[in-house]
Simulated assay, not measured.
Amino acid sequence: MPVFYLAYKRKPWIVKYREPWTNKPRVKSFGKDEEEKARAFERAQADLYEREREIIRRAKRRRAAQAPAGITVDDLLQRYMDTLSNPSTRAANDYHLRLFLSIYGHRKAHCISMEDVAAFLELQAKRGVGKSTACRRVGIVRTAYTWAVRWGLLSVNPLAGLQLSSPTPQTPDPPTAREARMLFATAAPHLQRVIAIGMATGARIGPSELFRLRWTDVDTRVAVLRMPNASKGAPLEAREVPLRSDLLRMLRQWEKEDAALGCPWVIHYKGRPVRSISRAWHNTLRRAGISRRIRPYDLRHAFASRSLDHGAELKCVAEIMGHANEKMIVRFYRHTNPRARRKAINAAPSLGLDKNMDPD
């Protein structure tokens, strides 16, 4: 780390040094009469640099000692999964990685190649797996490999250059008011609650939010509930959601029923908490005579679209749904309806081209 003098500067004594953690160059200037101070600073920085670099070297040696020799793909992915704090994310990743691990899990992690990934994607396509789902699965593997290099489990990432296409998400239109009534009429009691609360509050349908809702979170006297926030970086554990009058009447009735059972959860099946409604949902679609694809999560989309269609403020809709970024609502949750599309078609005046056509 040199100390040198530049006479033309207001503070001519210059010390150049590097930060030990980032290795970025830094410069500090001292006045004309501060040569000794500059040299003392240079010595202190040199000493600090060596001590901190030794800490870094020790950490690398510990990581190398902890990393098993010739780590397998299964070991690497399991270690990565252990770092995920959200149980829902871990469960989803575990599901998506099953086939990849069954094929490549026994292989040495550093031996996986781009050709292996291409073969896996081809296999997924032949099994009828959607392109979006297949890319998501490979994306999890790529993220795990990046993490492994960062933490010293691998010296080189064999998937560093992997590029995945971003297929257009195939999000179905949310249920219309008529479809929601058809579903509600044929649904089991616990699913009726999911439909009503999902359409009226925009809650995330699943264990991240709605299935965690307890009666202690619902205040029917002041018509408000505290919806648990999903683990997506929200600053608060829950958000306050006002209750509309039609939902409030149903909640008061359900609250009485559950008080007699001693059940603390708003969404439950015969007094037991609910983790998944996939089978019940598909059975309800079939009984309702709805053949098109509708997901439980589309109830959340329906809330956003219907609210905005009827003049709700975008910021309020975002806050109710637990989104800090209003653009997310417009980009992912806002759906148009046939009436709005017809209005858009007829918004511009006619060009009068039909006047030159012969009448039938």
Rank of each mutant, 00 (worst) to 15 (best):
L48I: 02
I290S: 04
L77D: 02
G202L: 05
A40C: 00
P338Q: 01
V129F: 08
F4W: 12
D360L: 13
R98D: 01
W13S: 05
L251S: 06
M328P: 00
P174T: 03
N86S: 15
H268Q: 14
F332R: 09
A67E: 04
T201E: 08
V129A: 12
N229D: 07
L162N: 06
P296T: 01
T176M: 04
R295Y: 13
F303R: 09
P25T: 03
I205S: 08
D219T: 05
N157G: 06
A109V: 07
R51V: 12
R18Y: 15
P169A: 08
N93C: 03
A196N: 03
F120N: 06
L236P: 00
F100Y: 09
R58D: 02
D217P: 00
A348K: 10
K355Q: 14
L225Y: 04
I112Q: 06
P68S: 11
D173V: 07
A177D: 06
C135Q: 10
N356D: 11
V317T: 04
Y95W: 10
H190W: 08
I14K: 05
G31K: 10
G289T: 05
P207K: 03
I294W: 10
C263I: 09
P235M: 01
E115A: 15
G139K: 02
E319R: 15
L121H: 05
H335R: 07
R204S: 06
S278P: 00
A324D: 05
A109G: 05
Q253I: 07
Y17P: 01
S155P: 01
R53P: 01
T336G: 14
L236V: 06
A188K: 12
A65F: 01
Q78D: 13
L183N: 08
W151Y: 15
L314W: 03
E240I: 10
R239M: 03
R18E: 11
R62F: 00
V15N: 02
E115G: 14
N86H: 12
M182S: 14
W215F: 08
V15Q: 04
A125M: 01
K131Q: 14
F332E: 01
V138T: 12
R295L: 09
E115I: 02
P228E: 06
A348S: 10
P68N: 08
T284A: 15
L123M: 15
R58K: 15
N229H: 05
R26Y: 10
V222N: 05
L247Y: 14
G322R: 01
D258V: 11
I112L: 15
R293T: 12
N356H: 14
W215C: 06
L154V: 07
R306N: 13
E52T: 14
I277R: 07
A344W: 05
R341Y: 00
R136W: 04
Y269N: 10
G206K: 02
Q253Y: 07
G322A: 00
P12E: 09
V3S: 09
R90V: 15
F120L: 12
L251N: 02
M328I: 13
M114V: 12
S155V: 06
S29N: 09
H110Y: 09
E179P: 00
V266I: 11
E257I: 13
L84N: 09
K24I: 02
R63D: 09
Y49I: 00
E52Y: 07
A59I: 00
R62A: 15
L99V: 15
N157V: 00
E36L: 11
A134K: 09
P349E: 11
V274R: 05
K16Y: 05
